[in-house]
Design a binder for these strands. Structure first.
Lengths: 261, 261
DNA sequence: CGCTAGTACATGTACGTACGAGTTGAGGAG
DNA sequence: CTCCTCAACTCGTACGTACATGTACTAGCG
């Protein structure tokens, strides 16, 4: 434990012991006595310091973990999580000039930030629209959609999964139905097909990841995800794409600009 | 346990027992065998069914709780969380016509949604700007700011805490420095002071709540928060307010509209 | 000198016990 | 019949044990 001066327990308090320990450690993290990346005292050290059972210190550590303040690494120790707000979605990220330069939004943004973008698990299928998607795309329930699923990585680390739904009547036969959607991404293809894009709407939720999501994004415990549903409209006012994305909240800061009108 | 046909453990699997149990319960919730609001089997029932130690089933239940799927109520049981996506922030929520009707954004929106809005814990102080705030407001570090903290509730349930920072040089002596900021809220006051608002920027993060935040918003375990930082700019391009808000992700779906240009 | 086996230590999983504290409902006292 | 007590059940906290598994370092072998 060394120089880290953790206080003693307050036996008069009715605050549970494990919460008191969590409080002490949290204060040390907040006060930078434990810097990001630094190793916390091991379970045995905490047991020795506080003279409590192992389960009690584990419970305390688990709280910090569920708050996203720490990560445990099997066999090594528990470490203060470093939270670099790495990436930021600018509200002009779908500006047309990016597409005209032949770059999809994700690629353009990542390169600007100086990190190496990549995409994997690209999977393109066609099937009937789910009720949710049909409603957003203004389709009836037996219309078909092209479904493009993929995963985005930065410097090899997964940060986002995305699934796009495009009405089959719009995209069938085009490069949108191919694995490689070509330069500028599917938005460039949609414009070539005569659907000049007018605006997007985005709905943002925050929640804890499901098991599959945590695995696909390699999320540490206690990290929530953004769940963003974007709908693209062409200038005729017709919805031409719905994109359902799940993003690690560690990797993103979303950024928007609103007019005061 | 009754009609709920939980599977048995797979002793050949190397998946930990507590995870298998969590999987079974999660599947029952996803498959609506356990409806929202419904009570899960009690710890003793699960112990009996699986023939495991209490700690093991508690561990399983804790996972579901950290995923936000359930809530435990002391002395009553563990229940499937019902998640009503209650509220949505429209991207025109700062449109001037709302202010001209004498309503602050929060009030106008809530009334439209048919719920009873209220505000409490209003606290107005003046002090030196923190480096973070000074930088966003384009101030030097010994300039003062007016700090307005408050908490918003819907139907008596807290959903959001907000802290606004306004340069003292702008707001001092005005109603902005009073507890009651008057009709239309502080944005209306800023415009009266000659700072006609031009646009806002919003930065959105998602993370787990800190202890104080969880308490102030009465958050159930496993519910992340939105952390939103909004900066308001007047038509001279000067930042005139920074608002730092923490919102329960249970209560909000954020919604934005982006031009394609 | 280089590799390896061993050891110490880290967290992960799982078992057990005991008692505290909130909730509910049944049954007895009045 | 009403009210209250209490038992029974719930989850919460805290103690103990044991062994598994991943990591890192070191002593010793080749």
């Amino acid at each position: 434990m060394g120089e880290l001066g953790l206080p003693d327990l307050d036996p008069t308090s009715d605050r549970p012991v494990f919460k008191q320990i969590a409080d002490h450690l949290r204060a040390a993290i907040d006060g930078k006595e434990l810097a990001p990346g630094e190793k916390l005292p091991s379970e045995s050290q905490l047991i020795g310091h506080y003279d409590v059972a192992r389960m009690t210190v584990r419970h305390a550590l688990q709280i910090l973990q569920s708050e996203g303040l720490t990560v445990a690494e099997h066999g090594k120790g528990v470490f203060v999580r470093s939270r670099p707000p790495v990436r930021r979605l600018a509200s002009d990220r779908f500006a047309r000039h990016h597409r005209e330069e032949g770059k999809a939004a994700f690629i353009a943004e990542a390169e600007e930030a100086g990190v190496k973008p990549s995409v994997d698990s690209i999977n393109v299928t066609e099937s009937k629209a789910s009720p949710e998607i049909a409603s957003r795309l203004n389709l009836s329930s037996d219309d078909s959609v092209i479904i493009r699923a993929r995963r985005y990585l930065l410097n090899g680390h997964p940060v986002e999964t995305a699934t796009s739904y495009i009405p089959a009547s719009v995209a069938r036969g085009s490069q949108i139905a191919q694995t490689d959607s070509g330069p500028g991404g599917i938005y460039a293809r949609l414009e070539e097909l005569g659907h000049r894009l007018d605006h997007f709407t985005e709905e943002i939720r925050a929640r804890m990841p499901l098991r599959d999501e945590a695995r696909a994004l390699k999320l540490a415990p206690g990290v929530p995800v953004f769940h963003l549903i974007r709908t693209a409209y062409d200038q005729a006012g017709r919805p031409v794409e719905v994109c359902d994305t799940v993003m690690s909240s560690d990797a993103y800061v979303l950024s928007y600009e609103l007019p005061a009108r």
